[in-house]
Every structure is written in C-alpha cells, then in structure tokens.
Design a protein around this nucleic acid. Sequence first.
DNA 1: AAAAAAC
Length: 474
Amino acid sequence: MTFDDLQLLPELLTALHATGYESPTPIQQQAIPYVLDARDLLGVAQTGTGKTAAFTLPLLQRLHLSRPTNQPSGPRAVRSLILTPTRELAIQIGESFATYGQNLKLRHAVIFGGVSQHPQVEALRRGTDVLIATPGRLIDLINQGYVDLKRLEIFVLDEADRMLDMGFINDIRRILPLLPKQRQSLFFSATMPPTIQQLADSILRNPQQVAVTPVSSTAEKVEQAVYMIEKTDKPYLLLEVLSNPELRRVLVFTRTKHGADRVAKGLTAKGIVAEAIHGNKSQNARQRALQNFKSGETRVLVATDLAARGIDVDELSHVVNYELPNEPETYVHRIGRTGRAGAEGMALSFCDAEERAYLQDIQRLINREIRVVDNHSYANNDVAPVPLKGPNITKPKGPAGRPPRPGRGGATGGAGSKAARGAGAGHARPATAPRHNQDSRSKASSPGQSAPVAGTGKPRPNNNSRPGRRRRRD
DNA sequence: AAAAAAC
C-alpha cells in the first residue's frame, strides 16, 4: 500500500514524495480514512508509529477543503487545536505541519512556555488555521484574550496518558468547555487505563478506534544488551562504549538532571562532543541542544526522561541507558527512540547492583531476557545476571506507599527459566555492533588510562547492596 | 525520588 491509495490531495502527496515517504505505517493506513471522513478517532498508539503524520495529513486536507473561499479580511480563525504534553513535542508537530503543508496555504502556530510570548501572540494576531500548544501557555494566552476557539473544527489530544501523568487533567478540563460542541476530535494515547478511557468518552462522539503495536512490542525491533557493572565504573564503560565509531549518534539517558549535566561535562572533557538536555535548562538551550544533535553537530545527547518519549531523531544509532529507569514502561519509551522507520537501532543498558530489580521489571514487561555483555573491561561478576522468571519484586499495581516485599512470591506462572546470559554465541558478540561485525569491538581504553566521565557515586561493597529491594515510592 | 509544565 502507498500513500497514493489513501485519497490524499496531490499537494500532500507531493510533499510526502519530497520527504521520501512512500508507504503509510499501520496507524496511518487505519486512521487517515476515518479522519478524512470527519469521524472522531480513538488512537491507541505511541509516537514512533507514525502517529503524528496520521493526524497531520488528513487534518491539513480537511482544513484545506473547508477553508472559506472568500476569506474575510480579518485574521483567520483557529480551526484546529492540537494539545501535547511537552514543548519539544509541540515543536516537532509544528515541523510536521510545515513539512506536509508546504504546498497548501494554511498557517500553523506553535505556542508553549519557557520562551517569550510575544512572537506567539503576534502569530495569533496574524491569524492561524492550526494551533499547536502545551496546556499551560495556551491557558495563559486564553486568559489574556489572545486565543479564540469558537471557530474550531478539529481538536487533537496527543499523548493523553502522558498528559494525565503530568497533571494536565485540570488544564484539559478548563479548555474543553471553550471548544464548540460541534467538532471533530482525535484522541491519542499509548495506553488505555480506565481514567484515560473516561476522558476519551467525555471528549469523543461515536469514535472509530484504531490500535497499533502495544507499548511493549516496540522493544522487539530494537536490539538490546545490558552490561552488569559497578556504579563507579559506569563513566569508564561509557567512554569505552563510545570509543566505537559505530555509535554515530547516541542518546544517553540518566535518571536525574544533575546526572545528565555531569555525564555531558565528563564526556566533553574527554573530547567527545556531547550536550545535555533536561528541564532545568532554558528553553532556548533545550532547543539548541536538540537541534545540534539532530543536525549531527553533537554526537552524544545526554538526557533525562524529558527526551524519553516522542523525540524523533533520524539515524539515531544507539540509546544508552546510563541509569535504568524505575518505571519499566520508560525503558520501552527510551529505546523506542532508536530503530525507527526501519533503521537498525540498538539499546545498551548499564545495570549496577542497585538496579537489578528494575532490570527484572523491564524484562518482565517486554517478556524477554536482555542479552548480557560479559566480555567488557568492567564486567562485574558480583552483579549477577537477572533471570526473567524470578521472584516478584514489585507488586504490579500495588497500593502506593508500601514497599514491596523482596524475595517472596513465586513467579506469576509461566514456563521455566533460561539463564539470562543467553545461549550460544549471542553473548560473546560485541554489544556495540547492531548486527554482524564480530570484530568491530572497540579497542577499549583500560581503566587505568582514562579518567572517569563523571563520578556518580561512591564505591559500595556488594554485600551492602540490596538488589531485591525496591525503594519506597509514595 | 525524578521528571515534565505558566508567569
């Protein structure tokens, strides 16, 4: 199937061909006809599935066709609103409109916080057909009287589950009554728990439902490996791993903003072009860092989970989990940044003794064992591999505030346990080569030669660590 | 405990 089969306008097809896209992804195949047909849509999909184009293309087409022929002399009204949780996603969606709408005479504006509102207000004054916004700044500008949504035709709520996670539910509730009842609504979410379903029910009318690849299955497309390692060796291992030129464009995830800064600084000190991106940076610095990374100026971007979802970088060869996330879903989102659009991608994770429980949760979620690399310079034999079927370490949806009991509770049914080290030649293969290339392993810098990228903690005797224990969350 | 988002 090609885009030509989707009844899209020639202007859109030309733009698509210019960008090199030929065949629609599953969500595009399913969603575009419904949206063109003015139906409400419930899309269960995460970014990376082609979701943005799935609504951008038909939305542009509908707006183009419904555009008043005798355009009044005043500024054009906002006819479509797209709400999205993070500023970077808003910008990215704006770029998508610019690309696909290049041959149409429609305007779009992107509004979000952290930057001066004046250019955004100016864009609204001039008039825009499409408004892409994060909730806070949108409400801000609505309150100041700069946004009129009375002529709205199409409303898109993107990443609804993330919106709720981030506490945007009240903002959404304030915006909804400002929209005309008579409208088309598109609702996208990666997951569909009851609260999200309720929100969807309150927004959509007689929706068509479209679902593609549940979150956990994207993990199957990305080759994954894990290094069992001491926490204090992570800076050295990162240098070793990055000494392999196959890691052309690398996104490194840390758990904290401070950690992201430290790692980026340490890499820079070692002559590796790296930048950090996180929520404590100014919006300008965030955009600059992302831009430099996308353009290839920066080889390594060190990020918090700000960049875990949605950020779309072409030719991202590797994701490195310098620290494992405690939410297993976050792991899936992180590694989903690579291996996109059919490209090869690889995810490398550094797991210290304290993170074993997280690794186990991750393996349970993706329902497979992650290959352990045991031939690297810093292999820590005291950090035992983590079998897929082990004792339940976290209560799946347990009541908050109570630390789960370690070491108790049997495996929740299921077949026997393979050793995590994997069978056959798999584990002897270098972790940094996505497919073949047995001999491409880097000349590792030895521990004595290189200074650490960043000290992330004090050495800790292993018998003090409590791998089975997960920290209290409340 | 961390992260994101309005001023």
